[in-house]
Nucleic acid binder design. Structure first.
Length: 743
DNA sequence: AGTCACGGTGTTTTT
DNA sequence: CACCGTGACT
């Protein structure tokens, strides 16, 4: 009995077809991850392919990690030398080695959306562009779209022809790229674009990676854009062993440049491609799957297919309408509470899916009130918090002093008395001399009319220089700690002593833990932990990557974030025309956009394994005004016989004071929620109450093997444990990361 | 230099 | 509603 016997015939075919281009059309829940992992195992076990020669692209880091684990279970060796990563991480890894060929330093900075916006602001100011007419947001959006399509500023200008507006955008694009280059920075889209550029410019580099990646697999292929496709096809050109897996019905990222033509036209680009369809669903009950099939059947732009399942019929799809959003949320919280109390399931079995992030708030409120642990995925990123960004900008400055944006942010944080006027003068000087802001600061005595600020600037420069010189010998954690100590950042917050400042300190502690976790992860993979490595990881994590399947909490997230996941019990909330499908699509969208919304609905429905509940409200507050929405058209597309309507409208007749929160109640809730912004959002116990081992015990570490506990020091957030290992000597580690087992 | 209050504006979705 | 940027004031 081999591991491949558990696969169905088309799955087995997909696994065994290792040579040449392969397109796997994998319906929702048809076991595509199983196919991919078994295929990798097959390549290694049966075909003797060196894992070093395999590249697998996944959509999130979390998926990458899971895939690695599952391959490990199948083959038990060698999975660490497979490249499993997202497009972005793979490109960064390549660029870190070779981007000097394009005239950047290999320690380039990665700009997030905030950084892009401030850079664009600078660019507009310099170009005298009225940001009332040309909004930074929209300029960036247009540039991003151009990059998705691999269009350069020149291309854009040519395309513009007589179009004045587009010409203007093209010139902004050009300046924006120049500014990025000056700061030795890349934005998200550049990561892909520059890698393609590198491949096209340097034949030797491309050849190296073509030789290296003899077997390439791409997951969620329907959501790749033109640039990503180019990246992949360049790599696969030589050996043509390219296997892509996707489902055109789950393409939901058109707004971000995903090119559905990549999947629909695959056979055209690779004429000898083998096409394999996986249509048996193993995930959902028959009722849920039928509902999904019926909804998606309303789309015309698709490869026709019908998923089927041998699973049981299951309960009907529940639909409930409420008077308002409060009651909707209360019902959901109630149902989940009931489930847990009756021992019919855990919190982690449940997911709340909504169209927009703004909808999460009210569920958080009700979950807090009902004492239900939850984790919010998405929304405001941890790394976007002020205190975190400040500290990261110190690290960025130390790592890449050409990053003017980072220098600008921290030069007066904490207050050093270097104000806007002084900074403006230095910036002007830098611009005139064609040097970076930081270089100008280093020679500040040559900047005219600086006056008294000179000594303050000198202090700052000395401080950064000191850190730069130490950076090579210190760990990331030590550098961060040094920044915190020398700037007095935390000390200042401690002195403030408010609810908010305490929460900020907690966040900083968490950042410290993240540096430690990073160092340990690198150690485990036998790689060295570097500052730029850490900054890169920080830039590329998605919130979904931090979901811990061992924690028992309800997940709250957008339908987009839910892609690729599955849950026994799913609540799709806010099922109203104007919310989902969105107001934008209904009023301004074309058929294509409506079909994309419908695919999003299909994705949502097919996340559910056993139980699906759709809810909506008759009345809801949006941006300060009350809206009255009809039931979503998607709900009406599900045949009646598959739906359990309950009592059509939930006539709970709430007491007035329940419906409208009293001011006192309201402000209390607000306090809780604002506090939540600063406390870790999940109900995660970072620090165990006690450890199940003590000094003198023999323990096992997943990587280091067996050792004896020498010392346990209780820190604020965690225990620091010192262990003397038989093989690798004495190591210090944090208990919650090390997962030591007493033996 | 830094803080506060006001008014205008706007988000669908994200690596 | 909530955020951001601007402008006046300390």
């Amino acid at each position: 009995m081999s591991i491949y016997d558990t696969l169905n015939p088309p799955q087995r075919e997909a696994v065994a077809q290792t040579e040449g281009p392969v397109l796997i059309l994998a319906g929702a829940g048809s076991g595509k991850t199983r196919v991919l992992t078994h295929r990798i195992a097959y390549l290694m076990d049966e075909k003797g392919v060196n894992p070093w020669n395999i590249l697998a692209i996944t959509f999130t880091n979390k998926a990458a990690q899971e895939m690695r684990e599952r391959v490990d279970k199948l083959v038990g060796f060698g999975s660490e030398s497979i490249w499993v990563s997202t497009f972005h991480s793979a490109c960064v890894r390549i660029l870190r080695r070779h981007i000097d060929n394009l005239g950047y330093d290999t320690n380039f900075t990665i700009y997030d959306t905030d950084d892009q916006k401030s850079l664009m602001k600078d660019v507009c100011r310099k170009m005298n562009i009225d940001t009332k007419i040309y909004k930074e947001r929209s300029l960036l959006a247009q540039i991003s779209h151009a990059k998705d399509e691999l269009l350069t500023p020149d291309d854009m200008e040519m395309k513009a022809a007589g179009d004045y507006n587009m010409k203007k955008v093209a010139s902004v694009y050009r300046e924006y790229q120049a500014a990025l280059r000056k700061n030795n920075a890349l934005d998200f889209d550049d990561l892909i674009v520059k890698t393609v550029e590198l491949f096209e410019k340097c034949g030797a580099v491309l050849e190296y990676y073509q030789e290296r990646f003899k077997y390439i697999m791409v997951d969620e292929y329907q959501d790749t854009n033109t640039a990503q496709f180019k990246f992949i096809s360049l790599l696969a050109q030589r050996y043509q062993n390219l296997c892509v897996v996707g489902d055109d019905d789950q393409s939901i990222y058109k707004f971000r440049g995903a090119n559905i033509g990549n999947i629909l036209g695959f056979e055209h680009v690779f004429p000898d491609a083998r096409v394999i369809r996986l249509e048996q669903n193993y995930r959902s009950t028959r009722n849920i799957l039928n509902a999904a099939n019926q909804v998606i059947a309303n789309n015309t732009e698709r490869k026709a297919k019908t998923l089927w399942t041998e699973n049981e019929e299951g309960s009907k799809v529940h639909f409930r309408q409420f008077l308002n959003a409060y009651e909707e949320a209360e019902y959901v919280a109630g149902e989940i509470g009931k489930l847990k109390r009756n021992g019919l399931g855990n919190y982690r079995d449940c997911a709340i899916l909504y169209r927009t992030n703004a909808q999460s708030r009210i569920f958080e409120e009700k979950f807090i009130a009902a004492n239900i642990p939850y984790k919010l995925v998405g929304g405001v990123n941890f790394y976007a918090r002020k205190e975190i960004k400040d500290l990261l900008c110190y690290l960025k400055t130390i790592n890449n002093a050409r990053d003017d944006l980072a220098v600008q942010r921290i030069i007066n944080v904490p207050k050093r008395g270097i104000g806007a006027t002084t900074l403006g003068r230095v910036q002007d000087y830098a611009d005139n001399m064609g040097i970076s802001l930081y270089e100008a600061l280093r020679v500040a005595e040559e900047v005219p009319s600086i006056g008294r600020s000179l000594s303050k600037i000198d202090g700052f420069v000395t401080f950064i220089q000191m850190l730069k010189s130490k950076a090579d010998v210190m760990t990331v954690e030590e550098i961060l700690q040094e920044v915190i100590d020398s700037t007095g950042y935390v000390a200042e917050l401690e002195a403030e002593d408010t609810e908010e400042s305490r929460a900020r300190i907690e966040n900083i502690d968490e950042l410290i833990s993240k540096t430690v976790a990073y160092q340990e992860a690198m150690e485990e993979q036998n790689q060295s932990a570097t500052l730029s490595g850490f900054l890169e990881e920080v830039a590329l994590v998605a919130d979904i990557d931090t979901v811990d399947p061992d924690q028992d909490y309800v997940l709250l997230m957008t339908l987009h974030s839910a892609k690729g996941l599955e849950f026994p019990k799913v609540f799709m909330v806010g099922m109203e025309d104007g919310i989902f499908p969105s107001h934008m699509t209904i009023s301004y969208g074309d058929d294509g956009e409506m079909e994309e919304e419908r695919r999003l609905c299909y994705v949502g429905i097919t996340r559910a394994m056993k139980d699906l509940t759709l809810t909506c409200a008759q009345q809801r507050m949006i941006r300060g005004e009350t809206q009255y929405n009809r039931v979503s058209r998607f709900v009406r597309e599900i045949p009646r016989e598959l739906v359990d309507l309950g009592h059509t409208i939930q006539e709970k007749k709430p007491k007035v004071e329940e419906l409208i929160p009293t001011p006192a109640k309201y402000s209390k809730m607000k306090e809780i929620l604002q506090g939540r912004n600063y406390k870790p959002r999940e109900f995660k116990v970072t620090k165990a109450n006690s450890l199940d081992y003590e000094v003198g015990d023999t323990v096992r570490h997943i990587k280091f093997g067996v050792g004896i506990v020498k010392e346990i020091v209780e820190g604020g957030r965690d225990y620091e444990v010192t262990v003397e290992f038989d093989k690798v000597g004495v190591k210090k580690m944090f208990a919650s990361f090390a997962k030591l087992k007493k033996i």
